[in-house]
Simulated assay, not measured.
Amino acid sequence: MLDDIDRRILRRWQADPDMTAADLAAAIGLPAATVARRIERLREAGVLRGVHSVIDWTALGYAVEVSLRVQLDKTAPRAFDTFMAAARKVPEVTEMQTFLGRVDLRLTVIARDMAHWQSLYRDAILTLPHIAEIEALMHVATVKTDQTLPI
């Protein structure tokens, strides 16, 4: 699906995502119009799904990050849908993933401090519907977050 030019564009863009299409074209030695068309084609094919800003939550005063492993009561009809709809309404839930296996979902929750976390846990998390079991893992350090691929 990808040819050498597409791979060159993606490699360069992964290395410097702030690069404009014109700068990208100059860096790989192609006309800007060609690179722009290639980028549009990659978007249409679903290879490029968007451009994201990465927010440093600690810079905004959120010093606590917790990963929650959740098992749902799957005997309840539509337990997943109901739980996910309710969890989406909690602003401090920054990520939600579903799994097959013993853990049904994983939530990432941020809080300003431990007092805020305790309040969130009691008032927002434990009140989510259909929780059968929950385990909280306190985040200590981020070792790797790189989402680049060897293209």
Rank of each mutant, 00 (worst) to 15 (best):
D3S: 07
D3P: 03
D4C: 00
L10D: 06
R11K: 06
R12V: 00
W13C: 00
Q14V: 03
Q14R: 04
A15D: 04
D16H: 10
P17H: 08
P17E: 09
D18E: 07
T20D: 01
A25Y: 02
A26C: 07
T34F: 01
T34N: 00
A36F: 02
R37I: 00
A45S: 11
G46N: 10
V47W: 05
G50F: 13
H52F: 11
H52Y: 14
V54S: 09
I55R: 06
D56N: 06
L60I: 02
E65R: 15
E65H: 10
L68R: 03
V70G: 03
D73Y: 14
A79L: 07
D81N: 09
T82D: 12
T82M: 10
A87D: 09
R88C: 14
R88D: 06
K89R: 13
K89T: 07
Q97F: 15
T98P: 08
L100I: 05
L100W: 13
V103K: 14
L105F: 14
L107I: 12
T108Q: 12
T108G: 09
T108N: 13
R112G: 10
R112F: 14
D113S: 11
D113V: 09
M114S: 14
W117S: 03
S119T: 10
L120S: 02
L120R: 01
R122Y: 08
A124H: 08
L126N: 10
T127R: 06
P129A: 09
P129I: 01
I131G: 06
A132Y: 08
I134K: 06
E135V: 15
A136F: 14
L137Q: 08
M138P: 11
H139Q: 10
